[in-house]
Computed example of a mutant assay.
Amino acid sequence: MFLSAYHFDGDPAVLIPAYETLMSGFPPDAAQLHVCVVTDSGITVYDACPSRAVFEEFSREFPAMVVAVGLPAPRITPLGDVHNAITAVSR
């Protein structure tokens, strides 16, 4: 898995509904690892793709998806290959 971060600057109260609209367009089982974090400056989404090649392909398609739901253009940070991931889901 290849992890990247998508930083969206702005008011989280505005960004979260647009992010949720974006995510509703993906099948529930599409993400292997996906985390949305509210920050002081907006939201940051950590997302894992199966490989760096898949990340690069997705990154070419992603800007149009973002604009379509009203999110600002993100700052995208490729982070690297995931060595280990431990998750516990609670809501």
Results as ranks from 00 to 15, higher is better:
M1K: 06
F2G: 03
F2I: 07
S4T: 14
A5V: 08
Y6F: 13
Y6I: 10
H7F: 07
H7N: 11
G10N: 04
G10Y: 03
A13V: 03
A13H: 08
V14D: 04
V14W: 00
I16Q: 02
I16V: 15
P17G: 08
A18G: 03
Y19G: 00
Y19K: 01
Y19C: 07
Y19A: 08
E20H: 02
E20V: 01
T21C: 02
T21G: 02
L22S: 05
M23C: 06
M23K: 06
G25R: 02
F26D: 06
P27K: 11
P28I: 05
D29P: 02
D29M: 05
A30W: 03
A31E: 06
A31N: 10
H34Q: 15
V37C: 12
D40N: 12
D40S: 11
S41E: 14
S41Y: 09
G42Q: 08
G42F: 03
I43H: 00
T44N: 10
T44K: 03
V45Q: 01
Y46A: 13
D47A: 15
D47W: 13
A48R: 04
P50D: 11
A53I: 13
A53W: 01
V54Y: 00
E57A: 15
F58K: 10
S59P: 07
R60V: 15
E61W: 08
F62T: 13
P63D: 01
P63G: 04
M65L: 15
M65P: 00
V66D: 01
V67M: 05
A68F: 01
A68L: 03
A68Y: 01
A68N: 08
A68T: 07
A68G: 04
V69M: 04
V69T: 07
L71D: 03
I76C: 09
T77M: 09
L79F: 06
D81V: 14
D81G: 10
N84E: 12
N84S: 12
N84W: 05
A85L: 11
T87H: 11
A88H: 14
V89N: 10
